[in-house]
Design a protein around this nucleic acid. Structure first.
Length: 152
DNA sequence: GCCAACGTTGGC
DNA sequence: GCCAACGTTGGC
């Protein structure tokens, strides 16, 4: 099993929205590296749900991959912000996994707290200029964060 | 609102 | 294939 972080702006889609919906396709990823990481995801992989571009940013909850990557339907919708004119049904460009909520963080675990943890210093999330919206997390880092946010 | 980081685009 | 210009991300 692998561990990941996926970022979302809570004003667009927050962890509570995932709880409400019960499951969600992770649509709208338009970065090849992030797409390729989603392609690696397997059912049962655990996902730290990160709230970005908010105050404070941080880990909001734990989710689980419930379906492997499929074509992102928003790329076919001309009215969508995520429309992709190069995409066809036969040859889609963008993909998305499906996730389900597991547990909401007791309180949002702020980025600042993660930065203060020496054991997490090597995390992709904490590197300068790390804008990737889907990131791998190693097990020790995942376990530390899960403990800090009481996610298990 | 600022700005550093970094991906993408497009002229050459 | 290079690289300048431009757009986006996202913390602060």
């Amino acid at each position: 099993m692998k561990y990941w972080i996926m970022k979302s702006e809570p004003s667009a889609y927050a962890f509570d929205d995932l709880v409400r919906d019960g499951r969600s396709l992770w649509t709208g990823v338009r970065n090849y590296q992030a797409r390729n990481l989603m392609d690696e995801m397997k059912v049962g992989d655990l996902v730290l749900f990160y709230h970005s571009s908010c105050d404070p940013p941080g880990i909001a909850g734990l989710a689980k991959v419930s379906a492997t990557a499929v074509a992102d339907p928003t790329q076919f919708d001309p009215k969508s912000d995520y429309f992709e004119k190069r995409a066809t049904k036969d040859v889609p460009v963008w993909r998305c996994v499906e996730v389900v909520p597991m547990k909401k963080a007791a309180t949002l675990l702020p980025l600042e707290t993660l930065r203060a943890e020496p054991a997490l210093a090597d995390m992709v999330l904490l590197q300068r200029g790390s804008r990737l919206s889907v990131q791998p997390v190693d097990k020790p880092a995942f376990d530390r964060i899960a403990k800090l946010a009481t996610l298990k």
